[in-house]
Computed example of a mutant assay.
Amino acid sequence: MAWNEPGGNSNDQDPWGSGGGRRGGDRQGPPDLDEAFRKLQDSLGGIFGKKRSGGPGGDSGKSGGFGLFWVGLLLLLVVWLYNAIYIVDEQEQAIVLRFGKYYETVGPGLNIYFPPIDRKSQENVTRERSYSKQGQMLTEDENIIEVPLTVQYKISNLKDFVLAVDQPEVSLQHATDSAVRHVVGSTTMDQVLTEGREVMAAQVHERLQRFLDGYQTGITVTQVNLQSATAPREVQEAFDDVIRAREDEQRLKNQAESYANGVVPEARGEAQRMLEEASGYRDAVISRAQGESNRFGKLLEEYRKAPDVTRERLYLETMQEVMSNTSKVLVTGETGKNSLLYLPLDKIINSRNVSPQQGSGAAGAASQTGQETPVPNGLEMRDPRSREAR
């Protein structure tokens, strides 16, 4: 009798060796596909609240459905916990929104939130970020220049950075463009190209931070770097000529200042020297005049006491002063005679200074021979300092 005919012993006649839902028996074979599909269907039915009707396997199908449900629920719980638990680094902060409203700011450490009720935003608040910009701008004296700059910033208030402004970094770019154009537009080209960059950077920093604080972006600008500004490429050659002309002007000014610094102090010193000399001459003349006046007063007192003696003394001092400045003396004779005697006093004085071994010229020779110097007739040798010579 066939194994699958009614009344047959299917357990003994089953060619795959499986019977009555029992696997294998004494022999192992391929699984029953119908039985596997039936169990899967029962499990799905248990999940959706359906019960298997009839048959001795109804209760086992229900319990298997509930077991699969709890397993799925456990898997969902694990996935939820994996997404709900997060770690905030030392350099970061996180804000939590509950039902779309700000709830708290979370610091470093291990934290948990409850999605989908809660939402979080996590950012690095200590790292400095940078933004670079370059564009053509108009200066105060109506010149077009290209100004490159770099803005360094960091997040100072994460709540404002996430909630107060949509795309705060875009707002930073717009505020930077506005601040730079305002500062460059109120500055001349020379200051932008030369020594005015540091002052401009400070002004841009102050104005940009004021804009960001007004917008409540939660961003703090740490530094603004204005790099070397240049002219547009279309006018670069003409701009270079202007720069060279400005450099030549400055060089000539420096040379003129150097020359002035050398001449002006010298002229001032010469003028001061002349003033000092004039002051000294004035003081000397005044002092000499005062001395002469005092001397004359003293002399007048003595003259009143002894007129003859004082007159003689004055005459002798005067003749001594006059004769000491001349080396030639002319002596005349009596009145009516034209005889003139010349005394070479300079020769006589020099002859006296000669050593005795060498003699004393004509006077020495005359003394050695015992002869005297002849005197012309009608002349009388007189002492020029005597009273008769007057």
Rank of each mutant, 00 (worst) to 15 (best):
D190K: 12
N124H: 03
Q371S: 15
D308Q: 07
M189P: 00
K305F: 12
G57M: 13
L163W: 00
F69I: 04
I243H: 03
K120N: 02
E312C: 03
K62Y: 11
G359A: 09
Y86Q: 00
D240E: 06
G7F: 01
W3T: 15
S60T: 11
L68W: 04
E249T: 03
Y259G: 10
E92Q: 02
V285M: 15
V204K: 09
S178V: 02
A164N: 00
R181S: 06
K133G: 13
D190S: 09
F37D: 08
S258P: 05
E317Y: 08
L341R: 11
L97I: 01
Q227M: 03
T222V: 02
L379C: 07
Q167S: 07
D240C: 02
V151T: 01
G49P: 03
H205K: 08
G49I: 01
K50L: 12
N111S: 08
L81N: 12
Q41V: 08
V180S: 04
G49E: 04
V235H: 03
L138G: 00
F66L: 12
S121R: 13
L226E: 01
L314W: 09
P31F: 07
V180A: 01
E257P: 05
A245Y: 02
Q358F: 09
M274P: 05
S351C: 04
V329E: 13
P116H: 07
V96K: 00
I117A: 15
D240K: 05
L316N: 13
E334M: 13
K298T: 11
R119W: 15
G109N: 04
I47W: 12
E301Q: 11
N377P: 14
V309R: 06
A201T: 07
L330A: 14
V192T: 05
M189Y: 01
L74A: 13
S360H: 14
S386L: 12
V263F: 08
S293Q: 11
E123H: 08
N143Q: 15
E195T: 11
E249M: 04
V71S: 08
I155E: 01
A306V: 03
Y303C: 11
